[in-house]
Every structure is written in C-alpha cells, then in structure tokens.
Design a protein around this nucleic acid. Structure first.
Lengths: 282, 282
DNA sequence: AAATAATGAAAATAATTTTCACCAGGAGGT
DNA sequence: ACCTCCTGGTGAAAATTATTTTCATTATTT
C-alpha cells in the first residue's frame, strides 16, 4: 500500500481540473485537511463534495474518510510536537520528547538524503579495498559503530577516532580506499584535514553532515545529508546522530542483501564466534 | 498537546466501567480503530456511541472523529509501511523502511520503559562517585557513547568494552559506584559476570535489555527495558540500540537540567575546549 | 432518600456518499 | 461543415450513514 501523498502525486496527471484543485489544496495543507469536513474542503478547494469522493476513490481509497485517515497517519504530527523540554519534566517525559525529536529528525532526513548519493556511497564501500571512517567526539561512536558493522561483513573497515592517527592513516589511503568523514556541523577541522589527505592518494571521500554549505562538503566526493533541528538542549546533536546511524544501517543492510557467498560466510562465522559468549541462543 | 494513547492511559483511572471497556479496546486495537465507525466500535467494545463520545471529550478531544485522527496520526502506520526489506529494494528504500522500524521501536520502548526505574537509574548515576558502563560487540558503541555523555557532565564515567578489563574493573567497584550492563538479549555472559562482580562490592547495578525474563534482569537492581521486534535482517539489533541510545540521552538531558554550578562549568569547559577544533562557530 | 455519576436509547444534527442531470469535448457518420 | 452519439467530468440535491445531543433510567455514594 503506497503512501497517501505519494498516491496523490503519482496520479496527478490523470486527474480532472476540479480534482487537481483538490489535490493542490491537500498537498498545500496536509495538516489542516486531516480535520476538515468534506464540505469545507470542497469550498476551500473550489470544488464539491462529490468530486472529492470521486477523487479519493480514484486514488484507491474507500472514500474521503479513508483518505483522511491515511493522511493523518503519514503526516509527522506537526501539531503535537511541543518538544520543549523543561526543568520540571521527569526523566520519562524527557525520554518521550526525545524520541519524538528523533522520529521527526529521521523523517526529515529521509526528505533531504539524496538517494543517488546514498547509492554511490554504498557502491563505493562495497568495492573498496579499505574503508576508514573518521569521527571525533560525538561522532566517534558512530564511526566505531559503522566500522563494526562493516567488519562483520568481512570488509576491511576501520574507525579512526583519534586525531593523531587520522593524519597518518589518511595519508596512506589509495584509489581503492573509501574515506568517510562524519561531522554534524561539517566544520571539524581534523575531519576535513583527514578527507583532504585521503584525497591526495585518490581515495573516494564521503561525508555525512547536517549542513549543505559547510566546508566538509567541498572536500567530499559524495555527500550524505541529515536534517535535524537540534534546537533544545542538545549540545550533543542527538537526533542527527541517530540519523547518521540509520544511514550506516541502511548501507549495511543493503550490502548484506547483496553480499556474495564469501561475505555471507563472514557474517555466519562472526555469529558463530559470538554464540559462545551467550548462555543460550535467542 | 499530549499524545492520544497517553491521554487514554493517563486518564484511565477516572473512567467509568463502560469507558474503560472502550479504552481497553482502543489500546488493544489501535490500528483497527482508526477506520472504524463509532457504532461498530460501540458494539465491539461492548458500549454505546454516546459513551464513546463522552469518553473522547473527557480525554480532551472535540469528539470521536477528533480522537480518531489523533490516533491515526500517532500510530506508526504498522499496516501501511510493510517494513519487509527485500533484495530488490534500493538503498534508499531500505533507509526508509529502517527509519520506520526505528520509530516503531522507539514508541514501543516508550510503552515498556518503567518511569520509576528510569528515575531510579538517573538518580543513582547522579549520585555515584564512579560510573562504569559494560557493553560488548553491538553494545560497545552504546556504552562508549553513554560514557562520553557522562564525561561531559563532569561525572566520573567510563565505558568498558573489553571483556578482559571488565572483570578487573568490576571487582574494584564499591557502594558508591554504578555499574550499567547493556545487553540486548540479556544473555551475554561477560556482561552478567561483570554485574555480579560489581554487586560483590555493593555497587548499584543497572541493566538495559530487551527481554524481561533474561538472566541479566535477576542480576540487576534497576532494569530498563527496550522493545523492538528485530524481525528482519537485523543480526545487529539496530532499532533496540537506538532505543538504548535514547534512554541514555534522556538520562543525560535530565542531569544537564538538574546539574549544579560545578557540573554546568564542566559542560561549559568541554564546549570551550572543543571550539578550537572547529573552523567557525555554529 | 436525595444527590451524583454513568450509561444507553432514541432523536437531532452533521457528514458522507450516491444518484442523476447537465455540460464540454471528441469520434464517426452524413 | 454539421449533426449525432459517446465519454468523462462536474455539481446539486437526495439518500445514506455517522456523529452528537438529549433525556430517561439505572447504579452508586452520602
């Protein structure tokens, strides 16, 4: 079952003029439409109730009510996000608001992440002889997590979270290497330096950042963007980091699915090796 | 504006018996209710339309229709996004399904995480002289991330992700220490051993796990549960790890908000120290 | 036993869907 | 070119369905 907004866009061409007006109004006022009676929507969109019903049917819904529910289900409840964390919040309330932030940030990232760039990054990683992931401070954990994932796949991956080692490692990369730099702000000088050094040896450089106009972007062959507001108390850009994690996870999963025999064995062996660490299988 | 399901739970006590039946039915059949006429819901829940409307009003909605929209908006469309990842999916499609999984898992965790235990854990961490976080394999990155957060707060925190060191460190903890063990399965023997050793010195033990009936639970003073299905290709329990991250983030944020002068200075100093690593301030 | 709260049946209202008549534009025949 | 006969889109109004309100009844409490 496809998403509501998608269905509207996909069928836009086949719509009649009056139906187009309805589609336009809905696309412009997603949120509002979820709590609008059909007759009001008819007036607001310059159409009639009957046409709205036909419109809904044409898109594959049972009727307007059905479409509306679909719409509500897919709109990141812009209204309900009052994620301001205050000092009076209990720890649990904070958790609550946090996960809301994270969800929003993930779905926002989905809208700024370029599928093409993501695919390029993935393919580069699959083909690389060596993968180095640079991340400092907040991003160090992400880098390590990513390296861990790739190692499981039998890839020659390595996290580099030490700014002394970074320069050394970066300068030894060659054209068959991929250097991935993670920096939320896109301004971490050490990471940028590492990518520049990597470029000297003709490694493919990939960055993951939140800011499209940051210096790291101009030093990267492939750019993967996250999107998170990081308004509140996040000195630690929590939600953007989750977005970063999700990106690596998608890459990892893709590679798992397209792995050849050898890689699958690598995964299998890892699992077997870890089994002995558990008291029982789950 | 609070979430629909929460409002139902929060006001559950104040409901009449018939309204409770409605609440029960909605909580058990969230998804279905979004596309159910009020009269059918009345029959299914063993109540009447009038009571449902009253019930909706009492929860702060304009009427049943309003409640239903709220519900639809907050149910991570379990049905619509069929998160089955297939080999034909592009990397971006995988990303898409992944973030859906993560969202679902986060909101599920919100429903199993005990606010009391979370608060206990937080308070223990705030008061501790020493905090050690044990995590191996998948969980190592989480442990490091958490330690990193606490360090920024000026807390004496340390991640221990090496199973040789774990035993050594654990056996040196005392009653003013907090030992936190992270294990998705709750069965990682090394982590359980570490917590047991920690307990000998009377440290407070905290676990984070997905399984309430796992051995780690009986070796912990405080238990924090995540909930994620981890159906698909997740050898790496991705979404539960995000839930773990979110838990630590909530704890961290709470402590930030309740930090005394000294701690705030610690944060400030950290930020200042890091400034020099950036080409410009963001 | 009176007051209060909760409930359901039925009436009233509101929203949605269906029906139907109309119109515009196109295809094919004269 | 002109006339039909279609077709598909549209809106007005009727029919249906859903929701909300009213009100009488039944529990529960004081």
């Amino acid at each position: 079952m496809e998403s509501t907004l998608h269905r509207i866009r996909a069928n836009y061409g086949k719509l009649g003029p009056s139906e187009k007006k309805i589609a336009d109004y809905i696309l412009k006022n997603e949120q509002q439409v979820t709590s609008l009676p059909i007759n009001e929507l008819a007036v607001l969109s310059g159409s009639t109730a009957a046409t709205i019903v036909r419109f809904s049917r044409r898109l594959g819904f049972k009727g307007f009510t059905d479409l509306r529910i679909g719409l509500a289900g897919e709109i990141i409840s812009t209204s309900s996000i009052n994620s301001k964390i205050t000092k009076n919040d209990s720890c649990f309330e904070i958790f609550n608001k946090r996960i809301n932030d994270i969800s929003v940030s993930l779905w926002n990232t989905e809208s700024v992440l370029d599928p093409k760039q993501l695919e390029l990054a993935t393919k580069s990683i699959m083909k690389a002889n060596r993968i180095v992931i640079f991340g400092l401070g907040n991003s160090a954990a992400i880098a390590q997590d990513a390296a861990h994932k790739f190692l499981r796949l039998g890839l020659n991956a390595q996290a580099c979270t030490d700014n002394h080692l970074q320069a050394i490692i970066a300068s030894h990369l060659d054209r068959n290497s991929v250097a991935i730099g993670i920096s939320h702000s896109g301004e971490s000088t050490d990471i940028i330096d590492a990518l520049q050094l990597s470029k000297i040896g003709n490694a493919t450089t990939v960055c993951i950042t939140n800011y499209a106009n940051s210096p790291i972007v101009s030093n990267s062959d492939i750019c993967l963007f996250t999107k998170s507001d990081e308004t509140s108390h996040s000195i630690l850009a929590m939600s953007s980091r989750i977005a970063q994690l999700a990106i690596f996870d998608a890459i990892y999963t893709y590679i798992v699915l397209h792995a050849d025999k050898a890689s699958i064995n690598a995964i299998y062996n890892t699992e077997t090796a870890l089994k002995s660490k558990k008291t029982a299988g789950r």
